[in-house]
Design a binder for these strands. Structure first.
Lengths: 146, 146
DNA sequence: TACAAACCCTATAGTTACTATAGAGTCAAG
DNA sequence: CTTGACTCTATAGTAACTATAGGGTTTGTA
């Protein structure tokens, strides 16, 4: 049972270019090729790609996934590392949530500052954004996926 | 009162390279130069950079900040756009929080699956990551700042 | 005056996880 | 034999920086 990259893409809910990208990054092994140089995938590839996509849906980085795949490929190892990795990931998510909640409080405070003046010059929001004595870093990075 | 880029960096809690980057991106106007070709900044630059950094600390994108700066530079305009932009940003943050909370529930569920087997082969977590019928996209992008 | 440390300059490449584009080859149906 | 859907490689772009290379300037001090 050998399928081409487009079918693999459909089965995994993942774009063709992304599959090629994972191959380049070493997450997916290089598949066999057809006479016309098309990639041919088998069961193992399908399952591995689904594993990767599931991890990605849990917002793991490719480097975390690489680590999990490495553990999976050596099944005799202690599974403590799997737990450790997952635990660290959960903590990251928790930190991100609390940073975002704090951020939201600031934004909502700021929203209250518009006096309804109708002119940019007098808008309390822009003034609120100008006067700041906090020199900290941004709480979080990046935007929600489109 | 003219200060050099290093002093501006200290005052704004922002790295030197980042200031140059903002200049290249058109967020900061090109400053005067000294005889030795060093950038020389005045009050207006300092205030503008602080505005930018405050917006960044609220996780706004450079493009959102560009829009706010544009409004600030034309103070006679209606301030409704400022409110709209802020409102949209708050909604983005809210969406991101709820996506992350859902994500966390999945991760915590997964954590429970390790049976304490001590071998990767039998680890319920890796098995849980392999069997997935959800072909959806990742809920969020990127990691918390380091 | 000589020298070093601290500062500054430009230009380029790397980061993450893809996405988009260009230009070409392969395969099945009509 | 041509059309269309599919595939191939290689390269550049995205966001907001960070890192590096290779040099010039200023300031303090011996």
């Amino acid at each position: 049972m050998e399928i081409r990259i487009g079918d693999l893409a459909k089965r995994s809910g993942c774009e063709v270019v992304t599959i090629r990208y994972y191959e380049k990054e070493g997450l997916l092994p290089k598949p066999a090729r057809s006479g016309g140089n098309f990639r041919l995938y088998g069961e193992a590839h399908i399952e591995r790609l689904q594993f990767i996509r599931h991890c990605r849906s849990l917002d793991m980085t490719l480097s975390e996934i690489r680590a999990l795949l490495g553990l999976r490929d050596n099944p005799m190892q202690d599974c403590g590392e799997v737990n450790t990795l997952l635990e660290a990931h959960i903590q990251q998510v928790e930190m991100r949530v609390s940073a975002l909640l704090q951020l939201k409080r600031h934004l909502v405070d700021l929203r209250e500052k518009c006096s309804g003046s109708r002119s940019v010059e007098a808008c309390g929001i822009l003034q609120g954004l100008g006067n700041c004595n906090c020199h900290g870093e941004s709480a979080t990075k990046s935007q929600t996926s489109g």
